[in-house]
Design a protein around this nucleic acid. Structure first.
Lengths: 136, 136
DNA sequence: CAGGATCCGATGGGATACTG
DNA sequence: CAGTATCCCATCGGATCCTG
């Protein structure tokens, strides 16, 4: 790595933090302000209760999110972004911007790559009497 | 998400790209200039041949890395960062900087959280006659 | 309402052995 | 040298059911 090599460890740390499937989605939703558990689940399409709970615990442990439970009936629990969480979100949004800027170019490369390798495989198959399996 | 909600998809896209275990390490190493397969493997401690190959293919398909093979004996294959790859690296380094800045605070939160939950569990155990299993 | 407990299939990734 | 091919296990995450 051209800068310093210890960057590698820090990158690993962030990716371990938010590289999973739901963390940044939750952080992003919490950016709109405190929200209760069930509303959070509704706001994030496709997330299961299990992952919502697990990811929230994870984020809470890291200090990115706070959990406040109000002793009422029915119970109410609100989750909110900490300052740390907000600062991380803004950094992550830079990544999103990069993705937005280049995602057309990326798709171009991908389909081109797929076409080339598909052509190569077809060539091999005929030359070898089609001994290789098609891609699943 | 306070900005636009489509950010979520873009974030997913980048994380799917480089959220795995080795991608950014490889990108970071390639930032020093073109390098051959085996040297790349030596430069990245702990990576297996399998993952080196797989991740390189992945990065190549996305257009972040180029593969150039020189028809010599012994064979020589060099991998290099594309411009796209370089631009991504600089963005990712912002994340690394965030991690570097806050990683002490993060560890503070984590140990505090662990202490609290450990204490709570101990309380439950004695009150219930220790009916719960210790954490593995 | 806000979770916890289980079960289970899908991937991710390591170790090892083999090849053009 | 630069990969492929297998085997295998650990973790991730979805679905479903249960509870204070």
């Amino acid at each position: 790595m051209s800068p310093q090599y210890e960057d590698a460890d820090f990158i690993r740390e962030v990716l371990d933090l938010v590289g999973d499937k739901w963390s940044v989605l939750i952080i992003g939703t919490l950016a709109d302000g405190p929200i209760r558990y069930s509303d959070l689940g509704d706001a994030i399409p496709g997330i299961s209760q299990r992952m919502l709970t697990l990811t929230l615990k994870h984020l809470q442990r890291t200090g990115l999110v706070t959990r406040t439970s109000y002793p009422e009936v029915p119970p109410r629990v609100e989750y909110a972004l900490t300052e740390l969480g907000t600062s991380l979100l803004s950094t992550v949004l830079a990544l999103a911007a990069w993705s937005s800027d280049h995602h057309a170019e990326i798709r171009r490369h991908q389909t081109e790559y797929d076409n080339v390798t598909a052509t190569q495989e077809r060539g091999l198959a005929t030359r070898h009497g089609r001994s290789h399996r098609r891609r699943q």
